[in-house]
Structures are given as structure tokens and as C-alpha cells.
Write a protein that binds this DNA or RNA. Structure first.
Lengths: 94, 94
DNA sequence: AAGGAATTTAGATAATTTTCTAAATACAAT
DNA sequence: ATTGTATTTAGAAAATTATCTAAATTCCTT
């Protein structure tokens, strides 16, 4: 039931932008930070939230921590939305 | 660009539950409120946010205001998520 | 082992969000 | 017109979230 956490994580524009950056491939925390006007500490905070929501995972290499997208949770969100759309009220479109 | 607003609206569990109630069909503000342990004022606040996010719309009838789901915005969210999933990083699943 | 770079953690503050109570609106029915 | 019901708005308090600075951690390199 990390479901609520996922929606919460997606609700912040900075975090969504981080996900979009990660869409291209893994990035270190520093690389991610360089795209924003924020301290590294704040970026780290957002990364933690994304991690807790299972939207990203990290892999350590040398002195760096690389983050990458974890798409599996996105499926669940899609399913929830999809079921909301496909509800069984009588006035169906067609 | 009410996009951010939509994600924000979806981030609250009460609001998601309201949407799920509305999946069955239109309900008055009072009916919705009866499913929660909150004052009507608070429910009204949540309805306003859902309305601003274009996730619901209202229709007045008699002394009541009925709310119903507006699924069209959900498509956009699905699209965003879907594009996030389908990113062009080399390690594709298959 | 000492120094340095990358990142996180802690603690504080500011900003935003959720909730309440009380008052205001809107409409209906007597 | 008065009263009653449904809902919203206003304003304040409580809770949560985003951000910063400073300190701590971790791992690499010499």
C-alpha cells in the first residue's frame, strides 16, 4: 500500500521533472541537481521521496550514486486511473 | 497547463476516494460528505480543488449540487505516465 | 592515514495544505 | 415573507511539506 505515497511523490513538479530527466537514462544526484536552482540537500530530499515511493532506485558506483527510473509502479497508477475512467455508471459514451 | 493542478488534486487520499465514489454516478455534496468523518466545509474545500483540477464538474438541481466525474483529464495523466514509461533509454525490456 | 569530492542527515524556517467553526448564500416550501 | 435545508466562503489553527545551512557519512585517491 505504497500507493498513496506514489501519488504524493508525483504531486511535486520538481520530482516529476526529475523523473523526466531520468527517462533518458541514469544520472547521479549531482547531475540531477545541476538542472535545478536548489541545494544538493533539497535534491537529496526529493530523491528520497521518489525512492520511498518506489519510483526510482539507486545503484552505487565509485564515488557516485546513480538513480534510475523504476517503471513498475507506474503500471499500478495507470491501472487505478484506467479503472476510474472505466466506471460502471449508466451514461457510457458508447 | 492545469496539469500540475491535476496531480496535486490526485495526491490526497480523501479526494481520490471522492473520485471513486463518483465513479458509480453523480452524488450531491451532502451525500459525499456522509462517507467521511469531516465537516461539510472541508468536503466543500476538497470538491473545489477537484473542480479546479477539472476532475469533476457540478450540475445544480433543486436545492442540491450534484457532482460527477470528468474523465477527460485522466487521459492526459495517463499519457504523461505512459510516455514516462516508454522512454528511450537503451536498456529496453524487449 | 589524510584529504577531497559526492551525497545524505539534522535541525530550523518558510510556505503550503488540511481542517475546523462561524457566518454567508442560494434555493425551496410553507 | 419566513423558515429550513444544502452548500460555500472566510478566517484561524494545526499539520505537513519544501527549502536552506551546517555537519556528518561514505568512498576514492594519493
Amino acid at each position: 500500500m505504497a500507493f498513496a505515497e506514489t501519488f504524493k511523490a508525483l504531486s511535486d513538479p520538481v520530482r516529476r521533472q526529475i523523473l523526466e530527466l531520468l527517462k533518458q537514462g541514469p544520472l547521479s544526484a549531482g547531475d540531477i541537481g545541476s538542472h535545478f536552482e536548489m541545494t544538493g540537500a533539497t535534491i537529496s530530499y526529493h530523491l528520497k521521496i521518489l525512492k520511498q515511493a518506489d519510483l526510482i532506485f539507486e545503484s552505487r558506483e565509485k564515488n557516485f550514486i546513480y538513480y534510475q527510473l523504476n517503471t513498475s509502479v507506474l503500471e499500478e497508477i495507470m491501472l487505478w486511473i484506467s479503472e476510474l475512467k472505466g466506471g460502471s455508471f449508466d451514461a457510457e459514451k458508447e
